[in-house]
Design a protein around this nucleic acid. Sequence first.
DNA 1: AAATTTCTAGTTTTT
DNA 2: CTAGAAATTT
Length: 782
Amino acid sequence: MYSDLLANLNPEQCEAVTLPPSDEKGRSRSALILAGAGSGKTRVLTTRIAWLIQTGQASPISVLAVTFTNKAAKEMMIRLAAILPINTRGMWIGTFHGLCNRLLRAHHRDAGLPSTFQILDTQDQLSAIKRLLKGLKVDDEKYPPKQLQYFIAHAKERGMRAKDLHSGDAFQDRLAELYAAYDEQCQREGVVDFAELLLRSYELLQHHEPIRTHYQERFRHILIDEFQDTNALQYAWLKLLSGHEGGRASASSVFAVGDDDQSIYAFRGADVENMRLYENQFHPFMVKLEQNYRSHGNILDVANHLIANNTARLGKNLRTDAGHGEPVRIYEAASDGMEAAWLIDEIKGLINGGISRSEIALLYRSNAQSRIIEHNLFSAGLPYRVYGGLRFFERAEVKHALAYLRLLENPNDDTSFSRVVNFPTRGIGARSIEALQDAAQLQQCSLYSAASSLEGKAGAALGGFVRLVDHMREATRHNTLPETVEFVIQHSGLIQHYLSEREGQDRVENLQELINAATAFIAEEGFGQNAKAASLPSENDAGTLEMSPLAAFLAHASLEAGDNQAQAGQDAIQLMTVHSAKGLEFTAVFITGLEEGLFPHENSVNESNGLEEERRLMYVAITRAKERLYLSHTQSRMLHGQVRYNMPSRFLEELPTACLKWLTPKMKDARWGGGRSGGSTWKSGYSHDSDDSQVFDYEDSPAARKPRLAHSALSSNIPRMAAPARDIYPFRVGQDVFHTKFGEGRITALEGLEADARAQINFKRHGVKWLQLSIAKLAAID
DNA sequence: AAATTTCTAGTTTTT
DNA sequence: CTAGAAATTT
């Protein structure tokens, strides 16, 4: 009986799960679930699928569930398998890219792709672009490969082909030409980049009516997670596949779950606007999930209060049944080193208090900030784990091995060819490659085919390489996947190369690990033995059936780059950027580096809507915490080899004071009569104890009430250790100054020493400027 | 082809 | 400052 499915849901969740997928006339109805942080979003999504199936309203094969990350897809799969008695393998649950890959494999002919097409990851794409520019003799100073890569990706994310782009601007038009050339190159080589997976499958559905109809009729129930992160192309794809394009009579029921307040990927093309578009075009039922099961009251209040500063929200307020809990603690340090030292102290306290290390997260806005924290954790002997960085399938040695494997599948993949033609070195230098590229250009064929046609010494070496690859392909024809991987690692000479290298031990291990990964892949995906019998019979219309295990493994390697340096099992403190913390939760969370310029980041302040995205980022960070939340900032920080003095983040000003507890005294200051928000000055005193007897409350502390004028900090009775480097400057951050030409302004940063010393000043009339202190005539205003 | 020096650009990230 | 790329030397 399906009622136990719903037994543990609150009324909102229950309403969402049981929304009718169609009305009494049999027309489909869609839904938009606004799911706040920690409101049980994944649970609603999976229960919805289970409910549809168990009530007989949907068969497993009529369900399509889309997520953004493999992790989310896997989690949904596991949870579903636990609820449903059926085999979930036949269901289409996966990432946009994974599902599109599946679609394109099944219909590669109609999509205009070879059956062996390979997927380029971001690195591969960049090297393909570099190669393209070189071949076309394009000045890569004027057209930086990175910029072209961005241009292409963004065009594709908006559904634009090169032919759709003509601006009249010569530079833009040239970029579009290069985009066209890039697409031609990819087509020739039989490779697709990430955005192409989506665009190509969109076009497949668009141009092939029978295929489109087939999938439209099959997928009667489409569910989408993290809807706020969709880009224009993904939205169009959804609209087409669900049959909402052009008002088709029997559209599918779409169930979208998202949180506009957690949209933090606009910088890579995500568009929250899709939520409003969806509302207007799909006319969905709307349900808000505002009950939070994660955080204590004070933490939620802080989050709600902060995010209320954003305009253009769909509007939502989280509430909890848990008590207020601890106040949110704020700490001001004199330097980044001091901040890290305080973190260590506080963490030790938490651990002594019984919180396990893996339940403590240290968050920062940018990766560069992790270094000093890591250093201090290391010195203190506290185990930690840093998220982000190189993942397994992105490591150079692994990519080399994969390149050989890809050549077995698809010899026309010039990116892979270039990567390993001379690695390990076999006497094929830059000159030979150039000759080869010319030959390939002339014959309009791949480097691989051109290699056999080349004469002379270079030709001999290249011929050797081609024969090596051909030999490996022949020899492994009847091998299992792990055997093939092992054979290639051995016979390509990769293992020998790294064995003879001084620091190659780790790389050798990673290559060995690749064989294990292949073994695990076979076991998990059920390739080889009786997996086919186990899957649903209706799967043969599309899916993994006609893919060779090697092709599937290569796609898997591109689409799922694997874990970051997972020190799994170890109980370690978690370090990561705020972005990568999305979707996670911890008992105790520290948000560090809350300074103007860092968080919000200086680059985003000038972007349109940049500040609101930064604020959402802060909202995401805050809502990761279950019981304890700490916010810290410092007066000075080493950045790019220079000491910088930043003001406290404006976000600190936007928090409700009743929920806060200052571990260091704070001083209130006069504000601008208008203009930018924030702009308080903080007293520079600080207590080394994090003992609560030293705690100062925002409004009530004696230090806060005592007026302290700008320059008094220099001559003050404040503890000396507070601001060691400050006396170097005749001014300080936060001070108001007068300039003969620019008028009144406030110092927002100081940097450089002696003759180099300069101040960043926010002038009332003339905006933000950097002025050399040795030149500019500045007078302090009392 | 490997080793060394010089230069340069430094948000956020998944697929 | 400092990682990674590019240029240059050996």
